[in-house]
Amino acid sequence: MMKFFHKLGSPPYFYGFAGRLAPWLGIICLILLVIGLYDGLVVAPTDYQQGESYRIIYIHVPAAWMSLFIYMVMAVCAVLTMIWRVKIAEVIATASAPLGASFTFLALVTGSLWGKPMWGTWWVWDGRLTSELILLFLYLGIIALYNAVEDKRTAARSTAVLTLVGVVNIPIIHYSVIWWNTLHQGPTVTKLGAPSIDPRMLIPLLLMAMAFQFYYFAVVLMQARAEILERERNTAWVQQLPEVNGP
């Protein structure tokens, strides 16, 4: 097992492994997405309070979960980068940042679209909305810092420090609706005790959340491969790849 992880840390092995795994993850994502969307938009019952409008939950909540999850992946990569200088961790963190920013943006936009008809406003500066907006700025700051430094390995190390400083925001986002009074309601699923959502509505939500997870894993592996090729373009093993060398 440990041997496998050591092997994964080597760019040529990771490049081949990710290339074989990514298409399968993509297929699983598509299947889950189709079932989840159909189940959520057609099969699931309407809500007693919000009618049909609540169905935006099937995009909003998985996107918001992903925005936190991807940041945690980046934080783990940052620790691996700072202490063990693992090249693959640097690559995965780099590939994750734009995806995390996209999911955060999607969560904010769908939340805003949901807020207007239900709350009566597009935006308020309450604890949950503000901390999620800070998360978007963190992602953008991480992307900007990485691109501002010429040497990629130095860039990855500086980015790792910023990522670890920003990780304090993750529990704040989660607990914002519990610590302070906010316009955003409290957690429905991610809490101790039973979820306050009907099982027929919960199942498509979990399917969509899994679809988003698989989407992230598939895309991050493909992006990581591209990043590895760029970083290692002068090495012998990249020169010898059939897709680089050509027929």
Binding site: D47, D198, M201
Partner: peptide
């Protein structure tokens, strides 16, 4: 000068609510 609605974290079909 502004009134916003705050809804709870519960989601259920109308018949269950009834």
């Amino acid at each position: 000068d502004e009134v916003l609605a705050k809804h709870d974290e519960k989601y259920m079909p109308p018949e269950v609510a009834a």
